Computed example of a mutant assay.
Amino acid sequence: MECITISGINKLQMPIVGLGTWRAKPEETENAVLAALENGYRHIDTAFNYNNEDAIGTALKKWFEMGKGKRDDLFITTKLPNMANRAKDVERFLKMSLQRLQLDYIDLYLIHMPFSFVCNEDNLTPVIKPDGTFELDNNDNIATWKVMEQQVKAGLSKAIGLSNFNLEQIRNIYNTAEIKPAVLQVELHAYLQQKELRSVCRELNIAVTAYAPLGSPGANTHFTTKYNYSVSDFPDILGHPLVKEIAKHYNRTSGQILLRHLIQQDIIVIPKSSNPERIKENINVFDFQLTPDDMDKLNKLDKGENGRIFDFLFFKGVEKHPEYPFALKIQ
C-alpha cells in the first residue's frame, strides 16, 4: 500500500487509499470494514457524526481477535463533530469516539467543520429550531485547536488536522499552532479540483485527503431523505463520457480512473462503499498509471466552485454562521 508521510509529533505513514464510511448504516458498516481489511485496506475514515463508530469498533475488535493484524498496522481517522466544535468539548468527544471504536488512540483527529451548532445534550445532535433552522453557536477555532494539540501531547491522537476549512481559516490555525495541521480533508474530485487550496497545503506541508472522490453518487438521496434538501443538476462524474472513454482504454472502471487521477497527484482518497466487489475495485489502483495526456484531459474537467456538491446548505441557516467556509453564489 502506498502511503503519504504526514506530520504529527512524529512522522506518520498515512495510506493513500482509505475506506470512507459516511452514510454507511451501522448494520452494513461492520461487514464493509471487514471486507476492506481483507482486501488490504489499512486506513479507515469515520466521524462522530456518522453514527457508525460503534460498528467500526466491533469490526476492528473481530479483526484483531482473528489474529489478522494489530493496532499498529492500521490508520484510523475520526472527527470532532459540528455540535462540539468548542475547546471545552474536544477531550470529551474524542474520548467518546475512542470508547466507541474500542481503541486507545486515534491516528488522526480532525475538526470536522469550522462552524458550530448548539448541542442537544440528550442525544448529542445539533439543536434544530421549530422553523427547521439549526441553532448556531459561536466558536473560536484557534481555542479549539489549542485543546486539539493537548490531545496529541496526551497520546490520545497521533496527529490532528482540519476538514472543510477554507484558506483563510487554515492560515489562521496554522499561524498560531504549536502543532501544525497534518491533514486537510475536503471535497475533491474531477469537477472540484481545489488547485489553489492544494497549492497552499503543499507550501504548508499539509497533506490533502479527498472525500467524495467519485462525486458521492448517493449523496443527493441522503440530502433529500434526511434534510429535505436537494441539489439541482446533481453531477454524474462516473458517467462522464471522457471518464468512461479513458476507463475503456485502460480496461478499468470509471471509479478506478477517477481515483488514480487523484492518487497520481499525491492526494489521499477515501471512497465510500459497502459493496465487497466495489471495495476491492477501489483499492486495485496501483498496477497501472495514467499517461500525462489522460491526466491533462481529466484536469480540464474542473468546474471550480461550480463543481461543489457539499456546500452544507442542507444545514438550514448555516450560511449565517460567521465561520461558514464558502462564498455563496449570487443568483
Rank of each mutant, 00 (worst) to 15 (best):
D302I: 05
I279D: 02
I309P: 01
A59N: 08
P15G: 01
D45Y: 01
L188G: 13
I4C: 02
Q331M: 07
F314N: 12
G239D: 11
N164Y: 09
V33E: 08
R198G: 13
E27R: 09
Q265P: 09
I4Q: 13
I170M: 11
S273H: 05
E65K: 05
K320M: 03
P276Y: 07
N164S: 09
K70W: 01
Y227D: 10
L124A: 10
T144Y: 00
Q151P: 04
A24F: 03
Q256W: 11
Q265G: 07
E38L: 06
D236N: 15
K272W: 02
S163G: 05
R86P: 11
A32E: 10
Q264T: 05
L290R: 07
Q194V: 04
L136A: 04
L156C: 05
K158A: 03
E178V: 12
M148P: 12
L60P: 00
N85D: 11
L12F: 00
N220P: 02
N139I: 01
Q150T: 09
F286N: 15
Q185T: 02
N228K: 15
G155P: 00
H112F: 06
Y41C: 03
K297A: 13
L19G: 02
M1L: 12
Q264A: 08
N51E: 15
N123K: 06
L313T: 15
R100H: 14
F117P: 00
K158T: 05
K79E: 03
F288G: 12
F315L: 13
